[in-house]
Amino acid sequence: MKIILTILFSIAGLNLTYTQKKSPLDGNWLLVEKNGRKLNFQNHQFKSYHQGYFSVIILKNDGTFNSAYAGPFSINGQVYTETYKYGSKPEWFGWTADQEWTLKGDTLHMIGHTRIVDPEGKEHPKTEWGQFVEKWVRAR
């Protein structure tokens, strides 16, 4: 019986290994700096990455809710791509945005938007959604 349980748990563990999409970004992050300006608790974003999906909560400067989004993300080299599938502004559903990213320890730097594509596949000027340089730290 002990051997059978060991084998079952081993198979289950192997199955989880192959079904999970691991990324160096997996986890929870707090936005601490945007365009060179340090942010405080009342005006930041909280972002999570897990198994190929992201979710983000964006607050207004007074700390109240502004918006939230979620959807699939991918990484290809130093290009991070997210697609808005769910969120508080349905007019963004299906849009895809590229950003450049670097990770050093528990600090993530994002530069965006380097490419923007609408749901029909038409590329838009990268300045349409605004340019930014962000610094995120892993939430603990």
Rank of each mutant, 00 (worst) to 15 (best):
V137I: 15
L108K: 00
H109A: 10
G52A: 04
P90K: 03
T17V: 14
Q51K: 14
L39T: 00
N43R: 07
V79G: 10
K47D: 10
D118V: 03
Y84L: 14
F93W: 01
Q131N: 09
Y80I: 01
I58D: 04
M1S: 14
Y53L: 11
H44M: 12
V32M: 05
Q42T: 14
K60Q: 09
F65G: 02
N61D: 14
L59S: 08
S74E: 14
R37F: 02
T114C: 01
T17F: 11
H124V: 13
H113Y: 01
K104S: 15
G77N: 06
V79T: 15
Y18P: 02
F93K: 04
K104W: 06
M1H: 15
K126R: 12
D98Y: 12
D118W: 05
K122D: 08
E123C: 06
S55N: 11
Y80N: 02
T81H: 08
G71C: 05
W95Q: 04
W101D: 00
P24W: 04
K89E: 08
S88Q: 01
D106K: 10
S88E: 00
F9K: 13
D118S: 04
I4W: 06
S10H: 06
H44A: 11
F54V: 02
Y80M: 02
I3A: 15
K104P: 07
P24Y: 07
T127H: 02
W136T: 06
R138V: 04
V133S: 11
D26K: 15
E91Y: 10
W95I: 06
